[in-house]
Design a protein around this nucleic acid. Structure first.
Lengths: 235, 235
DNA sequence: AATGCTATGTGCGCTAGCGCGCAGACCCCG
DNA sequence: CGGGGTCTGCGCGCTAGCGCACATAGCATT
């Protein structure tokens, strides 16, 4: 059983009324997620969900050349396993741990029970689904229209948010995969950002030096995502 | 009140048990949608949903330059108004009628009531939400990786599916907007498809001459979408 | 028949990102 | 201390799609 402290660290759960949250927590187990751990493969049935607390999870879709284009990044603001909430077990997405840390795991059966019992949970999760849909649409626009450097800046900000620290670890190789570009492209864009003193990095260790500068360098999608998040969550 | 015939023409409703469907139909009104009619603007509260029967609806998101990048196309296989199902009224998407025809309209209040009452409706709608998420992710990949000609082929197939006819009307200008490219790009791609006798068109009237050829010319995303649809709907 | 609008077609220079191949830099481990 | 793996940087030719500007073609209205 998870501690209350653990629950407060997932904002989706933290927003629930105390009684509901306590009950839900009793059904959760705290687990440690390790970097690059695969939590979910495409079309493989899953029967549990995760609420990240200090970890973060990258959602990808397979492309023609069996690469992995990123379609979502989940931190303590959300959850992994929307399919189960939508009463399905299958999903085309792959989920890989991108930031090691802990998460709360909940099995399908208690989840379904709680979704029926707790109107607050159902509402919070439904709104999160809606947020994810907005993010997906924004991701499509961003990948299609925006320059790599802006996309990289945005992606780094997203990583920073989920890491709850201004330093984290992702190699350019990995970033390239997730952004759907060549590694050299990331190298150039990252060099540019480093030259402008917005970030510093070496062998995958990335430090955000100037967060607001990075926001200027990023495309509007970062802000758009945050605004959608607030608008949908707080309506 | 809508006829039973009308209901059978929306596949989402058609899949419901007779009793549920009849009850839901009693709360629906058949409406005629006209080309280019705006059903929903970004962040404007909505309080009704639509089940297209013979019409089709294009979902777009605003981009930086106030263009409208398409993130979804809804025909009689789905519904417009997922936000309401997710207990929200706001959404960043714009909805415009792209194929004139009829649809069933349902207000928020009876919808909410039926979602509680009919487990079948809730399930069908949840699965549809899940399908839409897969489509959004696929749209991101497609827009980012695939050549315009393939994307156009795919888009035409999608239009044809929703039109339930191998002829329909969309100008190259409009297609360009939705695909997020220049009109001249569409002109070139369309010319190429026409030269290969896959389609024929003139002043917005498009005829699909060789559907299977068009599928070969399209990227895998078309098939991928269909497979996701089947897999999620029928699990 | 003349006018005008909408839809489609063409040319030209430009750039972001691609594929490929290679080079240097850093680090861990034997 | 040396060797192999990992991470980062660079050059070169190529192409899809861009922005801009202009040219034709079909249809409608008067």
């Amino acid at each position: 059983m998870a501690t209350l402290h653990g629950a407060a660290d997932n904002r989706l759960l933290a927003a629930l009324p105390n009684s509901d949250r306590r009950r839900i927590l009793a059904d959760c187990e705290t687990v440690e997620l390790t970097l690059a751990q695969v939590l979910c493969a495409p079309w493989v049935p899953r029967n549990c969900i995760y609420f990240p607390t200090s970890s973060s999870i990258s959602l990808t879709m397979p492309t023609d050349d069996s690469a992995a284009f990123e379609v979502g990044l989940i931190g303590n603001e959300g959850m992994l396993g929307i399919a189960l909430v939508l009463d399905a077990e299958l999903s085309p997405e792959r989920a890989v741990v991108q930031g090691a840390g802990s998460a709360l795991r909940m099995d399908a059966a208690p989840l379904r029970r709680e979704l029926r019992r707790s109107k607050a949970l159902r509402g919070a999760v439904d709104r999160y689904v809606h947020i994810r849909m907005s993010q997906l649409a924004q991701a499509a626009i961003c990948a299609h229209f925006h320059l790599l450097e802006s996309r990289l800046a945005r992606r780094l900000l997203m990583s920073q948010d989920r890491a709850h620290a201004n330093t984290f670890n992702v190699t350019q190789e990995v970033l390239a995969l997730k952004l759907g570009v060549r590694r050299v492209g990331v190298t150039k864009a990252a060099s540019s950002l480093q030259r402008r003193r917005l970030i510093r990095y070496s062998r995958g260790d990335i430090t955000v030096l100037d967060r607001s500068g990075l926001m200027v360098a990023s495309c509007g999608c970062y802000q758009a995502d945050r605004e959608s998040y607030e608008r949908i969550r707080c309506q």
